[in-house]
Amino acid sequence: MSSFKEIATKDSCFRAGSTLCPGCMESVAFQNIGRVTDNGVKTIFTIGTSCAEVSTLAFPNVVAWGRGDESSDDFGKSFSILHNVFESAPTLAEATRDVADALTDCGALDRPVQIISTGGDGGAFAIGLRTLLHTIHRRARVTIVILVNEIFANTGFQYSPATMPYADTSTTPAEGAPGNMNPPLDYIHLAIAAGAGMVAQLSPAHGKMFVKAVERSLEVEGTAVIFVPAPCISGWKFEDGQTVELALLGARSGVFPAFMWERGKGGSVKDCSLEASERPDVVDFLAMQRRFAHLVQRDKVTGEVKPKPGREQDIENLKGWVQSNVERMYSLANLK
């Protein structure tokens, strides 16, 4: 394991010039993953159609990928990225792994490769749930990174199966309606049940934990899955500069607790108490985002956040969901 400081000085394969929104957590995640993978091993990314694809892989405009300003003579520094349709990234990664292994088995390739699949929660949990679960089920030796912004951000902020209750999306509008009423898919449990070797829910807001998890994911047997809570500045509608703060608050308040789990070892919930009284109030998390503007309001004088009149019960319901979410995560941590 490398130290956090050491990793911070590595050469990321995610380069400047992407057109991701300023404040997008995806670019922060890529920057960190890119540094962790600067470890002397050839890196191959696969990517499904998503914000991350259309904003970083734009030819002849900026292709924000590659290690170094020019290709290195050192194969261990080389980098490739492959995009195909929305749901395909895990299968592409699995295929790449298989080809590398088959070539190695023949003696035709004597250098290792590391393979990372990336995509959004829309691609992974809606149109791509099949491919996600089956690649995990086949124990493909790849790391799957899913950037969970709880919406189909790339196509106009529509509901995704990861959308949290009461969120205002373009297909679960909150105007005259409550917003989303479907509880999110239990994707962490699904990944464990499908046979993942490692499952984490971490964002770069937990910097050290995040890079350690990415580094560990490259070593574990079977498929490693990292769900990255990814506050979306355009879809969640928060203020500039609040991305990391929002990601931390969301994790600590219990909306998406930091979680690390390995098969055979079990796991743990990090930085999020089981007791609601010991966690930040989820209302503070809601108040930072205009996608919950129908639920809460901030007093302009006192700064106090309160439920909007008539929404008190909705807030209580939401708090109930958060508590059940935290309890579920603690239960999952006990699985071996």
Binding site: E53, S80, L82, H83, T96, A100
Partner: peptide, 19 residues
């Protein structure tokens, strides 16, 4: 042409209309 294993390349890019 390079493949993803033996190359330093990007495939399946999002391209401008002209390209």
């Amino acid at each position: 042409l390079p493949g993803t294993i033996n190359g330093d390349t990007a495939m399946g890019n999002c391209v401008t209309s002209r390209h």
